[in-house]
Each structure stands twice: as structure tokens, then as C-alpha cells.
């Protein structure tokens, strides 16, 4: 595309917004056409399409991101909106508060610990460890944590994508192996490990799974945000 046309188009944030909407709609359509494969979530198809489109027209990512900010600002109210399914499922959540309260800190801590342990064993430097530590935390919280640890936010977003995408087939596979068909357990595991991507998947399964996923996602976010920076200081991983 001639650069002057591109310059005219990218001068308005609507170009980036339109591109995002288009990639999302085409990605979702392809996802449905492929009969909703659990190993290839709609968001991965859409992200690949979007990255391909940006590379094709030669639009710098920073320019795109600036325009798309008009859209991503809605992430705030969308997160608040999750309070609604949370409230609707409150009686079912309350009935299970004890197992959930025990499971959450252990699982959320291990979600970080396993990944960091493996990366550390494979010789990843501290900067990389700081970038992937919040891999199971929902994006708006994870960005804050990563900045606090001194990690790279772009790498974090990639880690979120990989984690979210991997969580979905892992949960369906492990649930089958462990003979679990309780949507509450499956939803909670999807949200706790796979943050927003897992939660979106859980809502595709059922409203109950979605509500437990929202709960798992938000509790993991809060728990990790409060304790990870502290643990980081104590263990001194960042200095390594």
C-alpha cells in the first residue's frame, strides 16, 4: 500500500479500531466454521489475522496500539461487568467457599511457581522470568505486576496468549483423565489458569462455568498481585 494512503488512514484511530473489529469477526467466523476447536481458540485465529494484516500493510505496532487504545479502554468497564455473573452465581459459590478458599492460594501460587521453575532450570535470565511470572493473571492486573517486577510487557502479553490458549485443551484433557464433569470445577480451573481467555471459553461451555471462571480469574489476579511482588523481593529472583 502506498505510504501516503496508509499515513492518511492511520491518522485516525478508527483504522486500528476497524482492523481489530474485522480480525475479531473473521476470527470468530472461522472458529465457528471449524466447529469450535478447543486447541485453536477464536482469539488466537483473530490475533494471527491481525498480526498478518499489520505486517502486510506495514503498519508499525506502536501506531496500531495507539489507535486501538480507543477500544481497549473498554477493558475497564468490561472487567467491572464480570461482577454480574459473579453475583448471579453467588449462592453456588457460597456453598463451596471452603474448598475454593483452600484451592485458590495453592493453585495460584503453583501456576506461577511451575512456570518460573521450569524457565529457571532451562536457564532463562531474570528479565524473562519477571516477564512471564504473571502468566495466569488477567491482563489489566498482570501488566501492573510485570511493571513492578521489571519485566517486559509485550512478552507478558505473549505469555498470556500462550498460557490462555494452552489452558483450554489442558483443562478438557485433564478433566477427561480425572473423570471430572462438574462445570464448577472446570470453570474455576479455566479462569484460575487461563485468565480472560479461559473465562471466555468457560462462558462458551455454560453460564455456571463462566461464573466460576470469573471468580477464579479475579481471585488469582488479586492473590498474585498482592503476594508475587513480595515473594519476588524475598526470594530475590529479580537480582539473579
Amino acid at each position: 500500500m502506498p505510504t501516503d494512503v496508509l499515513a492518511t488512514l492511520t491518522a485516525t484511530p478508527l483504522f486500528a479500531v476497524g482492523l481489530t473489529l474485522a480480525a475479531f469477526l473473521v476470527g470468530s467466523a472461522l472458529f465457528n466454521r471449524l466447529k469450535q476447536p478447543s486447541w485453536l481458540p477464536a482469539i488466537l485465529i483473530a490475533a494471527l489475522l491481525l498480526a498478518g494484516a499489520l505486517a502486510l500493510i506495514g503498519m508499525p505496532y506502536a501506531t496500531y496500539q495507539q489507535g486501538a487504545a480507543w477500544l481497549t479502554v473498554l477493558l475497564g468497564p468490561a472487567t467491572v461487568a464480570l461482577g454480574m455473573p459473579l453475583y448471579q452465581q453467588l449462592p453456588r459459590i457460597r456453598a463451596l467457599w471452603r474448598p475454593l478458599a483452600v484451592c485458590l492460594p495453592i493453585s495460584a501460587a503453583l501456576a506461577t511457581f511451575y512456570a518460573l521453575g521450569i524457565a529457571w532450570l532451562m536457564g532463562s535470565p531474570g528479565q524473562i522470568l519477571a516477564s512471564i511470572a504473571a502468566k495466569s493473571v488477567t491482563a489489566p492486573i498482570a501488566i501492573g505486576i510485570t511493571e513492578q517486577l521489571g519485566g517486559n510487557v509485550a512478552l507478558l502479553m505473549g505469555a498470556l496468549l500462550v498460557t490462555g490458549v494452552v489452558t483450554i485443551p489442558c483443562v478438557s484433557l485433564c478433566a477427561r483423565v480425572l473423570h471430572i464433569d462438574d462445570e464448577r470445577i472446570i470453570g474455576f480451573a479455566l479462569g484460575l489458569n487461563g485468565h480472560a481467555i479461559g473465562t471466555v471459553r468457560a462462558f462458551e461451555l455454560s453460564h455456571t462455568a463462566g461464573a466460576f471462571a470469573s471468580l477464579g480469574m479475579s481471585l488469582t489476579g488479586i492473590f498474585t498481585a498482592l503476594l508475587l511482588p513480595l515473594a519476588w523481593e524475598l526470594i530475590g529472583v529479580g537480582s539473579g
Binding site: I43, A47, Y64, L71, T72, L75, A139, I143
Partner: peptide, 10 residues
Amino acid sequence: AMLIMPGVVG
């Protein structure tokens, strides 16, 4: 899902 896409693409 659409709202987190712009960041993920990075």
C-alpha cells in the same frame, strides 16, 4: 476476547 486482542498481538 476482542478487547485484549490489541495487546496480545504485540
